[in-house]
C-alpha cells in the first residue's frame, strides 16, 4: 500500500455561477522513502494540491490517504515548507524553530527542546544567526529557517511548496544540495512542488507534470534513473538526464501550445473591410 495516496481528487473554489474547478481527477501515490516532484506552470493549482495533502483544505470530491488513513486537518506527521517562508517576524530564528519543537514534543523538558532546536538550526548552518529576526536574514537564510522548522518536528513526510521559487539561482543550487543531504540522511518521504524542471530532475526520483488549471490534472510520470548523489555539472552530459529533460519540457510545451491554440480559437474578429483612401 502506498504511503500517500490521492484518489480521484476534485477541488472547486467559489459557489454557484462563479464556481471553478481548480483540480480535477487527481490520482497520485507515493511510496515510503520516495522523493517525488510535481512540476507545473504558475497558477496551475500547485499550492491547492499541496494544501490538500497537508490538510489545510479539504477536497470537494475524492480522498487523501496518508499511511492508509484519510487526512483530516493538519498533522505533525507531515511537515510543510511554504513558498513564502511564513516565519513569524516577531520571533528570532531560535524562537521560530522552538515553537515547532514545543508543539511536536509537548512533554519534554526545556533543555531537550533547546537541544533539538539547536540541532536543526546547526543542520541548516544558521547557528551564527540564531538570535536574529527574520527581517535581518537574506531570502535563502529565511528559507533555511523554514526548513529547520519543518524538520524539527520530525515529520514522516516532508512537503515542499516551491520552497526555492523566490531565490536567486546560486542560492537555489546550494539549498537544493542542503535539502538533498538532509533527505538522504534518513530517507524521509518527500514531495517537492516546483516550476523548475531541472530542479525536479536533480532532486527527485519521479517527476509528474501538473497540467495547467482550471481542471488541472496530473500528466504521465517520468522516472529519473540517475544514481545518487547526483553531480550537477556531470548531469548536463548525462544522456538519461538530457532525454528525460527534453521529454518533460516537450510535454509541458505541448500543453502550453494546446492552451494557446484554445485561447486563439475564442477570439472572433469583427467583419470589417478597410476603407481605401487611394482612389
Amino acid at each position: 500500500m502506498a504511503y500517500l495516496e490521492l484518489n480521484n481528487i476534485y477541488k472547486n473554489y467559489g459557489q454557484g455561477d462563479s464556481e471553478t474547478e481548480v483540480l480535477s481527477n487527481i490520482n497520485l501515490s507515493i511510496e515510503e522513502g520516495e522523493f517525488v516532484a510535481i512540476v507545473g506552470f504558475t497558477g496551475s493549482g500547485k499550492t491547492t494540491l499541496v494544501n490538500l495533502i497537508n490538510g489545510l483544505i479539504e477536497p470537494t470530491k475524492g480522498e487523501v490517504l496518508f499511511k492508509g488513513k484519510p487526512v483530516s486537518g493538519t498533522s505533525h506527521e507531515r511537515g510543510v515548507i511554504f513558498q513564502n517562508y511564513s516565519l513569524l517576524p516577531w520571533l528570532t530564528v531560535e524562537q521560530n524553530v522552538l515553537m515547532a519543537v514545543k508543539e511536536a514534543f509537548p512533554k519534554r523538558e526545556k533543555a531537550v527542546w533547546k537541544r533539538k532546536a539547536h540541532y536543526y538550526i546547526e543542520m541548516v548552518g544558521l547557528t551564527p544567526a540564531i538570535n536574529k529576526l527574520p527581517k535581518e536574514l537574506s531570502g535563502g537564510m529565511r528559507q533555511r529557517v523554514a526548513v529547520a522548522r519543518a524538520l524539527s518536528m520530525k515529520p514522516d513526510m516532508i512537503i515542499m511548496d516551491e520552497p526555492l521559487g523566490a531565490l536567486d539561482a546560486l542560492t537555489r543550487g546550494t539549498l537544493q544540495d542542503q535539502i538533498l543531504n538532509i533527505w538522504e540522511k534518513d530517507k524521509r518521504t518527500a514531495l517537492l512542488i516546483t516550476n523548475d524542471v531541472d530542479e525536479g530532475i536533480y532532486m527527485a526520483d519521479r517527476i509528474i507534470p501538473l497540467r495547467p488549471g482550471p481542471n488541472a490534472t496530473l500528466g504521465p510520470e517520468f522516472k529519473i534513473d540517475i544514481d545518487r548523489p547526483r553531480d550537477k555539472t556531470e548531469l548536463n552530459d548525462n544522456e538519461n538526464f538530457k532525454q528525460t529533460r527534453n521529454a518533460i519540457i516537450e510535454y509541458l510545451m505541448d500543453i502550453g501550445e494546446e492552451r494557446k491554440a484554445k485561447a486563439t480559437e475564442e477570439i472572433l474578429l469583427p467583419e470589417l473591410t478597410p476603407i481605401d483612401f487611394v482612389k
Binding site: 489545510l56 513564502n84 511564513s86 515553537m99
Partner: peptide, 15 residues
C-alpha cells in the same frame, strides 16, 4: 500565512 503556520504546527487555541 501566519494562520497557516499555526494550523500546520497544530497550535492550540490559546497558543
Amino acid at each position: 500565512d501566519y494562520i497557516n503556520v499555526a494550523k500546520v504546527l497544530k497550535l492550540g487555541p490559546f497558543q
